[in-house]
Design a protein around this nucleic acid. Structure first.
Length: 136
DNA sequence: GCCAACGTTGGC
DNA sequence: GCCAACGTTGGC
């Protein structure tokens, strides 16, 4: 079974709408070992929650892994990797950070536990819970 | 703008 | 190898 993930992006820098417009993008620039491990664990077809940090602070859409991890060309040290993602759909209703914090079934979520992590795993149960909250 | 939580760097 | 200092992220 496919795994699920959550990726963060500042909408100022790259929003879900940008992804929809582009149709496909290289998800690079991750410079954190824990996040990089998650990128490496992604399989083609894995679905991702796309979260807007700082502005919005909400999950706005779903994306999918189109290409598994490869060396991040923007990293001179060659230690980090990137993946390619494509948009799947915008959620009917965004799910805010406050909503997620208030939902006891999401208490163990990695992104809530470690707020600075830009790529984090999402369990099947957490995934279903969030989609339900999004009325999706 | 501030601060907490981390990660990284560099002196020893 | 330890740890203090510093930088970055992201919520508030």
């Amino acid at each position: 079974m496919a795994s699920h993930w959550l990726v963060k992006s500042e909408p100022n820098a790259y929003s879900f709408d940008d992804l929809v417009r582009d149709g496909r993008t290289v998800w690079d620039g991750v410079r954190n070992n824990a996040a990089a491990l998650h990128l490496k664990a992604m399989a083609k077809g894995d679905q991702l929650l796309f979260y807007h940090s700082q502005e919005g602070k909400e999950v706005v859409g779903i994306a999918e892994v189109a290409k598994t991890a490869f060396p991040d060309k923007s990293d001179p040290t060659g230690r980090f990797v990137a993946v390619e993602i494509v948009p799947v759909r915008r959620l009917k209703q965004s799910v805010t950070l406050a909503d997620m914090k208030a939902e006891s079934r999401l208490a163990g979520m990695e992104m809530l536990r470690q707020s600075r992590l830009s790529v984090s795993p999402v369990s099947d149960e957490q995934w279903k819970t969030i989609l339900k909250m999004a009325k999706d």
